[in-house]
């Protein structure tokens, strides 16, 4: 299982949720708010994208913030 934490002061929950909606075909996503962070966990990741999924996801969320 992979996970990535987004700082709430920099990333909005809406952007993270929208990114999950776009990436939902590549893995099972779960979202949890913990303190100052939004934690996104990815399970059953598509083999072809396993190594890059979390980083591509982070880039996508950042793209939505711009």
């Amino acid at each position: 299982m992979q996970s990535i934490k987004f700082n709430k002061k920099i990333y909005t929950l809406e952007a993270v949720e929208k990114a999950i909606e776009e990436f939902k075909n590549l893995a099972d996503f779960s979202l949890k708010e913990a303190g100052n962070y939004i934690e996104v966990k990815m399970d059953k990741t598509d083999k072809e994208v396993k190594n890059i999924l979390s980083d591509e996801f982070a880039n996508y969320v950042l793209g939505l913030m711009s």
Partner: peptide
């Protein structure tokens, strides 16, 4: 950061 998304992976953190 947006302009560099095609070259590198970027994650932002800290206190704005």
């Amino acid at each position: 950061a947006y302009l560099f998304l095609d070259k590198v992976y970027i994650l932002l953190d800290g206190d704005p």
